[in-house]
Design a protein around this nucleic acid. Structure first.
Lengths: 263, 263
DNA sequence: TCAAGTTTGTGTTGACAGGACAAGAACCCT
DNA sequence: AGGGTTCTTGTCCTGTCAACACAAACTTGA
């Protein structure tokens, strides 16, 4: 930072170009076998009444990450700590907010066992929406939040390939089938149970067996071993997203996936 | 963004918490078989005299990316457009700048055939430094720029695995050996020439043959075919960084690499 | 009790990709 | 011509993965 012609040397804080910094959070969870995100309905202009990502201004003495967690809590009533919080990117197109220059730092999070979201703060309402709705632009979102969400979805999809984050969508103890459902839902693909089983059980310290098995269920089936997440954060040789959708067929026939980081 | 208790609704722009937004650019190039980055010597306090990333304040009507390109040009005298420019992440720890709250959006870039850097703007001096110096903390950098650079280095290393970006380090036309040198330098690893050759030539539209071959050199050797970059941006099945360093052995024996995105 | 259905987990096989290494091709120099 | 260097292709071998068969353990219903 070799500051240029408007040098803020501490003597005149008002000399800065007036820019506001906000954070926004794309929170993912899996409900009803669908990947869903948490949105709030805006209670103020601009875009009053539209659905938007929870977020808001960064306060003087908090970090960006703290601001993201605080806004998530304030605006949705969620008290549980997210299982994962990671920076996605920063969006600062000059006119993305009609009032003034607003640069927003977007985060994405995983939340499992989501408690009932309620409105809070300036948000009139909070609710979950399926990502397929957002991807189809069926919902008119505030600001550039639609773009942010689409990039977050791509990020979480690619992260499942080479990290163990999928387990964060599950309860603290889970079966391999449950874990497989996460992949199938997020990728919208069918995965061979046998090969998936081998893959995750042989990946070093991805899963740790608790020694227990599931109780008998209706419709029968062999009881499944119960696992908890291991310490490994990365999968040595990634899983591959195959081009075999389970129900809907969208997939713009385009470039291979992007992989992303900072976590 | 459901803005919270200090709502800037356009009527009072001064009600915002005073935050400044800057951009910083980590520019990579390969010189003397080493991965190098472009730094400037700060001409002003704070950290006057220290080496720092080129960067500065975002102006009211420019995008973040435009600001990054402008600062790179102003502070280093580089006129060539970078071959690649991509957001790395945003750093906003409350006290990272002693003067006031400064949130910086970091970018990273690839520049080939770097013209002689010169100082410009507020920068007294501009110069290239080997990344091994920065990784070894042999240079005392301003602000948190050391951390930013380290994350950028990890990013470019991982991006070479699954993208065709390596070609951006080369001149517009190049041989497979030159391309292999890029990988070897960035990864600090030895790569088998035969297998590398097969890999990149069979990867769809990674390379396009110009039909030419190199002129005879001293020390002999068979003339190499000359290629230009293809249109493909991603490699179908990634190259792998193997644990075989060419000269120095560092490598903290830790977690697998992170892969990153937005580009 | 037995058959059929369901889910979990293991075995087997064949295709393919990648590393190691040999060898051929095309050039230099002496 | 012979040896050295670099580029390029060939061969072998191993490990991985998808596909699919099948065994294991359970429930339901007759």
């Amino acid at each position: 930072m070799g500051y240029d012609t408007k040098p803020p040397d501490g003597s005149d804080p008002r000399a800065y170009p007036p820019v506001a910094v906000t954070v926004d959070v794309v929170t993912f969870t899996i409900v009803d076998n669908e990947l869903q995100i948490l949105l709030i309905r805006r209670g103020q202009d601009p875009h009053r009444g539209r659905w938007a990502l929870p977020g808001g201004f960064v306060r003087p003495n908090e970090s960006l990450e703290e601001a993201a967690l605080r806004e998530l809590h304030e605006e949705t009533g969620i008290t549980a700590e997210p299982r994962h919080l990671e920076q996605l990117g920063t969006y600062g197109r000059p006119n993305r907010d009609p009032r003034m220059r607003v640069v927003t730092v977007a985060y994405w999070a995983i939340l499992a066992n989501l408690p009932e979201p309620r409105g809070g703060g300036d948000a009139a309402e909070a609710s979950l929406f399926s990502v397929v709705m957002v991807e189809a632009d069926a919902l008119k979102l505030a600001f550039d939040h639609s773009k942010i969400i689409k990039e977050a979805v791509e990020r979480v999809r690619s992260k499942l390939e080479y990290t163990t984050l999928a387990a964060q969508f599950c309860p603290p103890e889970f079966t391999i089938s449950q874990l497989r459902r996460v992949y199938e839902v997020v990728w919208n693909a069918r995965i061979d149970p046998a090969n998936f089983h081998r893959k995750v059980t042989t990946s070093p310290d991805f899963l740790r067996s608790t020694g227990d098995v599931t109780n008998p269920r209706a419709r029968g089936g062999r009881p499944a071993k119960i696992y908890s997440p291991g310490k490994a954060m990365y999968i040595s040789s990634p899983l591959m997203r195959s081009p075999s959708p389970t129900d809907s067929e969208d997939e713009p026939p385009e470039e291979p996936p992007n992989r992303s980081d900072r976590g």
